[in-house]
Design a protein around this nucleic acid. Structure first.
Length: 273
DNA sequence: CTTCTTGTTACTGA
DNA sequence: ATCAGTAACAAGAA
């Protein structure tokens, strides 16, 4: 599932590949994947070029140079953005294809069709970004900021980590990995966290997300980068999908699987308090 | 066949 | 106002 590290990997790679290129053709294979009318979508993109790619949380925004509009892309669960130097055939899960002036192509693939593409103006893009809480890679995401965000909240840790309106970018995989690294139970009530523990949580969030980016994300089912390659963080997972394994930290207990915040959740009952 | 998987939103009830 | 829980969406794997 694409979370912050996966979306950031795609953003960084795609910037090197498509910035400045002119979109000469757009093929919408699955209408449902586009949030605009077909005409509006094509009109804003055809014969225009991509000036920049930005991201907040799991949402990508491609800035269109000529008309200052933005193409928002959310991959949700199974979305992929795969770039090819030469023209390729449509695959079963291909929903949209962009062709550039050098005949290279960008495929938006999405098996389960939850992801979307949407043309918005600058103001609408700002609103979409503002709706989300702070991005983990934002300079102003400091320990003090996290302290303020957790203040007066009476919720369990995992539901806060997953809440995009509080912190943007964490999904089910990294929520469990962060809790394991910080040695907190995912269902721990955050009102019980003191300053020292919030600092520990902060360090685990930064450490886990940065290490995952360095390893180009996690591929469990569908995620691939813009070259179609899998991420290497899958090998470094300690709890996600490890419920049959022994804990890599204590080597005493096996990883438990429970449900927290409506999601499958894995943790070590011995290490995490 | 059923159950499980997950990002996000909508809704209900406490 | 807050928070927990559930359904919905969709398609495939087990």
């Amino acid at each position: 599932m694409p979370e912050l590290p996966e979306v950031e990997t795609i953003r960084r790679d795609l910037k090197k590949k498509i910035i400045g290129k002119k979109i000469i053709d757009i093929r919408v294979i699955q209408k449902k994947s586009i949030k605009n009318s077909h005409t509006h979508f094509i009109k804003n993109l055809k014969n225009n070029s991509i000036e920049n790619i930005s991201r907040k949380g799991k949402l990508l925004s491609f800035a269109i140079k000529e008309n200052k509009s933005n193409l928002l892309i959310h991959l949700r669960m199974t979305g992929q953005l795969v770039y090819y130097i030469t023209e390729k055939d449509v695959k079963k899960n291909t929903r949209v294809i962009f062709t550039f002036n050098d005949n290279s192509q960008l495929f938006f693939n999405d098996t389960r069709r939850f992801g979307y593409l949407q043309i918005v103006n600058e103001k609408e893009k700002d609103v979409a970004f503002a709706k989300m809480g702070i991005d983990i890679l934002d300079k102003s995401f400091t320990f003090e900021k996290l302290q303020r965000l957790l203040k007066n909240k009476k919720r369990n840790l995992k539901s806060v980590l997953l809440d995009q309106k509080v912190i943007a970018g964490i999904g089910n995989i990294y929520a469990d990995e962060i809790c394991f690294d910080a040695k907190f139970r995912p269902d721990k009530n955050i009102t019980k966290l003191n300053d020292k523990e919030i600092k520990k949580l902060y360090n685990s969030i930064i450490k886990t997300i940065k290490l995952a980016i360095k390893n180009r994300g996690t591929s469990f089912n569908d995620y691939v980068d813009s070259s179609g390659k899998k991420g290497n963080f899958s090998k470094l997972l300690k709890v996600y999908q490890k419920e049959k394994d022994h804990c890599q930290n204590c080597h005493k207990k096996s990883i438990k699987k429970i449900k927290v915040a409506g999601r499958a959740t894995r943790y070590c009952g011995y290490c995490q308090k």
